[in-house]
Design a protein around this nucleic acid. Structure first.
Lengths: 223, 223
DNA sequence: TTATCGTTGTGAACGAATTCACATTGCGTC
DNA sequence: GACGCAATGTGAATTCGTTCACAACGATAA
C-alpha cells in the first residue's frame, strides 16, 4: 500500500537513516544519468557499501516505494527522497563569516546543486564589508538580524572564530532562523526549536590519526 | 589499577566513542586554559551535552585515568587522550586539489593546531602548478606518487572533483598512504588496510533541511 | 583512626540500530 | 492462467551503544 509521505511524521527516525537517504539520493542521481529505470536494494546497497536489508528498512520508514520482483523506479524514488529531505524546493541561506572556510563554501557547487542558495554574506571586517564574493556584496554583520528578517533567510552557515559564534547565534535566533550549520568548534546554546549541526573537519582527521596509531576498524563500519 | 594505553588494542571501539574523545580533548584544552586542575565526568559531560556515565565509559575503554572522589587530572587526561588519538606527534599531510575547498583547508588553523601539517600541495591545473599557497609551491599531480614516497607523506586530503578522485586514490595507495580524508562525494575503493573518511558538507545541510520540513528531532540526539 | 563525602569504574539492564529470514507479491513466460 | 523467479516489506532476532546503579575507593576532616 502506498503511504503518502507525511510531514507530520511522528515516528522518530535515526540520524543515520537520514544521512543514508542523502547517500541514496546521490546514488540515484548517478543511476539516473546512466539511464537505468529501476534499481534493486541490492544494487543500491552495493554502491554505498551497505546491506540490502538496510536500504529496504530505511526506505520503509517513509513508505513503500518499490515493486516486488523488480526493485525501485529510479526517477520516482529519487524525487520521493528529495521530498523527504526537503530538496524539492530551494532554501535561502546566509553565510556568516567570509574567511577561509566561509569563502570556500560560498563557491561550493554542491550546495547550489541541492537547492541551498547562499544569498547573503556577512562579516565584521571593515575591509571585507562591501567587497564582492561570487556576485554577492558582503554585508556588515551589524545588520544581520535586520537583513535576515527582510530577506526571509531560513538557514545560517556559521564560519566565524569560536569566540564570536554564540553572540551571532543569539542574534540569528532572534531573527527567527531555525537551522544553523556551525563550523566553529564550540557548543552553541539555542532554544529547543532551533536545529544546529556541527561540522568539525579536524575530527575526521583525528579519527584517521587514531585509526593509524591503533590500526583500528570500528565495530560498525561507519560513514 | 593504571592500565597502559595499548596500541595493540584489540577491543573494537565505537566510532562515536572516538569522536567524543575529540570533544573531550577540546574541552580539556579549554579547561586547562582556565587553570583548573581536575575535572569530574559530570562537568565534562555538561560542557559537551552528554551524560557523566557516557564520559566515564568512554574513558574506561582506554584505562583508568581518574581518582575516585576527585575526578580526572586535566593536564594528564588531556595528554592521555592526545596519545590515544595520535595527537602527541605530528603528521605529514598532502593536500590534493587546490580549488575552493582545498585552498581553504590549507589555511585552516585547526589542522596545524592538532599537528596535521600540510607539507605538499598537488593539482593538475597548469595555472596553479608552481604557484604559491601559504608558502607551499603547488606540485604537478603527475609527481604525486614519487613525492609522497620521497617526503614520506602519511595522510592525504582529497579535494578534487568526484570524477578524478578514484584514479588519484589508486596512485596514493600505491605510494603507501594508509589514511585518506575525502571531500569528493564518491565512494572510494581502497584495500582493507587503508582508512578512508568521507566529509560531505551538503549532508549536514540536508539534515537541517529534513529537520525543518519534518520538524524532526532524532531518537538519539546526535553530533 | 575512623567517618563522611564525592566520584570513579563497571557489570547489568535497557534501548536503539542493524541484520535475518521469510511470507508476500508483481512480472514475465510458457 | 498457472508457474517460477526476483525482490520487496517487515516482524523477530541479534548486535551494538547508552544509561543505570552501586560497590569500591581516595581525599578530607575530625
Amino acid at each position: 500500500m502506498e503511504l503518502p509521505i507525511s510531514p507530520i511524521m511522528r515516528k522518530r527516525i535515526a540520524e543515520s537513516t537520514i544521512h543514508r537517504l542523502s547517500l541514496y539520493y546521490r546514488a540515484l542521481a548517478s543511476i539516473e544519468r546512466e539511464n537505468q529505470a529501476t534499481v534493486s536494494s541490492k544494487e543500491l546497497a552495493k554502491r554505498e557499501k551497505l546491506t540490502p536489508a538496510q536500504v529496504r528498512k530505511d526506505l520503509s520508514f517513509f513508505g513503500s516505494f518499490g515493486t516486488r520482483g523488480l526493485g525501485y523506479p529510479v526517477k520516482e524514488l529519487k524525487s520521493k527522497i528529495a521530498a523527504i529531505l526537503g530538496l524539492d524546493r530551494s532554501w535561502k541561506v546566509a553565510m556568516v563569516g567570509v574567511g577561509n572556510i566561509g569563502s570556500a563554501l560560498v563557491s561550493y557547487k554542491e550546495f547550489q546543486k541541492q537547492g541551498f542558495n547562499i544569498v547573503k554574506i556577512f562579516d565584521n571586517d571593515q575591509r571585507k564589508i562591501g567587497s564582492n564574493h561570487k556576485g554577492i556584496v558582503v554585508s556588515d554583520i551589524r545588520n544581520l538580524q535586520k537583513e535576515i528578517e527582510e530577506d526571509k533567510l531560513e538557514m545560517i552557515i556559521l564560519a566565524v572564530p569560536p569566540a564570536s559564534a554564540q553572540a551571532i547565534v543569539d542574534d540569528v535566533v532572534k531573527a527567527g532562523v531555525k537551522a544553523i550549520l556551525n563550523f566553529a568548534p564550540v557548543n552553541l546554546k539555542v532554544p529547543d526549536d532551533v536545529f544546529v549541526r556541527n561540522e568539525n573537519m579536524s575530527m575526521e582527521l583525528e579519527y584517521l590519526s587514531f585509526a593509524l596509531v591503533n590500526n583500528h576498524t570500528p565495530k560498525r563500519p561507519g560513514k
